[in-house]
Design a binder for these strands. Structure first.
Length: 211
DNA sequence: CAGAAGATCCCCT
DNA sequence: GGGGATCTTCTGC
């Protein structure tokens, strides 16, 4: 499988978010070292839901609160991970996009499990929903703050491989989840999902949201 | 099935 | 000192 190159990430965050649908998130706890156990150690899933967060002006984006120790990764180079802790117990995984100096990232919200489903950390619900939600997927793949700033463009503990692209007529759009405090920004249709996937964190509104 | 509430801790003021 | 890009459990219809 081909790892997504730097150019994939160094684009506007909405483009990267939409194109991440169908790509394969891979967790290799041993750092992807060569050896007979490499394949067995892999955990992976197909990305089926994401959200875009775009710059200081976006009141739902953490960076709108300023450039701080926590938000620093979003200001850095595209293609790295931004991991943070929410509600004191759940980690969220983001993919930083370009350009350097512009704080933007894609929150990965749900995966359809592919490899190692039986070795993933279980929550409640059927196996298909083991990674259906930003907190669930980080728990399933064992992602925490130690993966913050990880380079997703190179084989390692965490990276993304090319998958089957999702055609436009299979892409759902809707407002982002859990950001009501952001006013008008909360209503922007910056949440993307794969139509018909059984691993969505929750349904998309039927009505077509306005740009 | 919907709504409410609790868990729990890092980050910023 | 307060709040959050969530999830689970429990209640009541």
């Amino acid at each position: 499988m081909r790892i997504l190159p730097a150019e994939f990430y160094d684009r506007p965050v909405l483009d990267v978010a939409r194109d991440l649908l169908g790509m394969i998130l891979v967790r290799a706890p041993n750092g992807g070292a060569a050896g007979p156990d490499r394949r067995a150690a892999r955990l992976s899933g197909r990305i089926v839901e994401v959200e875009a967060y775009d710059g200081e002006a976006d009141l739902a984006c953490h960076a709108s609160k300023g450039r701080t120790e926590r938000t620093e990764p979003m200001f850095g180079p595209a293609g790295r991970a931004y991991v943070y802790l929410v509600y004191g117990m759940h980690h969220c995984l983001n993919v930083v996009t370009g350009p350097v100096g512009h704080p933007a990232a894609v929150l990965v919200r749900a995966l359809e499990p592919l490899e190692g489903t039986d070795r993933m950390e279980r929550g409640s619900g059927p196996p298909a929903t083991i990674a259906a939600g930003p907190g669930r997927l980080t728990r399933a793949l064992g992602i925490d703050l130690s993966q913050n700033r990880a380079d997703l463009r190179a084989p390692g503990e965490l990276f993304i491989e090319a998958g089957e692209p999702v055609p436009d007529d299979r892409v759902l759009r809707g407002p982002r989840i859990g950001v009501e405090y952001a006013g008008a920004w909360a209503r922007k249709p910056w949440r993307f999902g794969v139509r018909g996937s059984s691993a969505l964190s929750r349904p998309f509104p039927k009505k077509r949201a306005a740009r």
